[in-house]
């Protein structure tokens, strides 16, 4: 009784909560957010004002830098596509099938989050080098994996595994099975049912996962740095170029490349967010009419 009256009370004055602690909690939040995130980030802008636009542009469009963006972007894109394919498959298997070892498989998905990236990096580099367990299987055919863009992509696939699985899984769990059954009864093959009935529903979640892998992949350092080998114009990734510039005390150069990466990952996340939202609205809109 009492609770329902309070609910009504709250609706009348929706902006003034009766719960105490507003000033304290918001104060602590804003102070910590400013000290740890906002003020340091604002310093990037402050530092950049000390350099001329021409200098900034020259570093941005430097041939080595352009190549590094390309390596980072293309490898991250490939890794994201591979992760989407296996991510959907894993989510499907984990949600829809029951088999021995399912819980183990499910529990292992987050290993890339739990395992330090440097450890993953040296393990993958050694495994896929010419003498490594897996690399030695490919070496006789002239296929090199470590110290090539294939190796970089591999490391990014490793790091990106949890993203797509974990964004698709909850959506798949909640999916209404009646439409699938209807499609099957009407004679659709399992593949057609998946493509025409299930996939559209999963699309926003898939896009979100894809965007997360892509953004993470572009900025990833620890797991990639060892396997990349850091050969300029070949396997030098953008975050590594920032590191190289810092070691030369070229702060302006490092900051310019950092700005490109920041803008790139924001554009990716923003676009994916908008796109996923649009698709979701279209599906929901279609269901209402």
């Amino acid at each position: 009784m009492g609770i329902s009256r309070n609910t009504r009370l709250r609706r009348h004055k929706s902006n003034n909560s009766v719960i105490p602690g507003f000033t304290l909690s918001l104060g602590v939040t804003l102070t910590m957010l400013s000290l740890i995130v906002m003020i340091p980030l604002a310093s990037v802008a402050v530092v950049m004002t000390g350099y001329s636009l021409a200098e900034f542009w020259a570093t941005l469009t430097d041939k080595m830098a352009l190549h590094a963006y390309w390596v980072s972007l293309s490898c991250a894109l490939t890794a994201a596509i591979i992760n989407v394919v296996f991510g959907i498959m894993l989510a499907w298997v984990l949600v829809r099938y029951d088999f021995p070892g399912r819980r183990l498989l499910d529990g292992l998905i987050e290993l890339p989050f739990a395992l330090p990236t440097a450890v993953a990096g040296i393990a993958l580099t050694t495994l896929y080098s010419d003498q490594g367990w897996i690399g030695s299987l490919f070496a006789p055919y002239g296929i090199k994996i470590s110290y090539t863009t294939t190796g970089i992509t591999l490391a990014l696939v490793f790091i990106g595994i949890p993203f797509v699985v974990r964004s698709v899984q909850p959506v798949l769990e909640k999916l209404d099975r009646q439409t699938e059954e209807a499609a099957a009864i009407l004679g659709a093959s399992p593949f057609t049912t998946f493509r025409r009935v299930i996939l559209p529903e999963l699309l926003p979640a898939i896009l979100t996962g894809f965007g997360l892998v892509l953004a993470r992949g572009i900025g990833e350092y620890g797991s990639v740095v060892f396997i990349a080998g850091n050969i300029p114009y070949e396997t030098q990734i953008a975050p590594l170029l920032i590191m190289v510039k810092l070691e030369q005390f070229n702060y302006a150069g490092a900051t310019s490349i950092a700005l490109v990466l920041i803008v790139l990952s924001f554009v990716i996340l923003f676009t994916i967010h908008r796109l996923a939202g649009q698709i979701e609205r279209r599906i929901k809109g279609g269901a209402d009419t």
Partner: peptide
């Protein structure tokens, strides 16, 4: 704003404190 560190390369996070 709280989510910003998620979207940034760890190298940039370090760079910010150098700056």
């Amino acid at each position: 704003l709280i989510d910003i560190p998620f979207a940034m390369s760890p190298v940039i996070a370090g760079l910010v404190f150098i700056l």
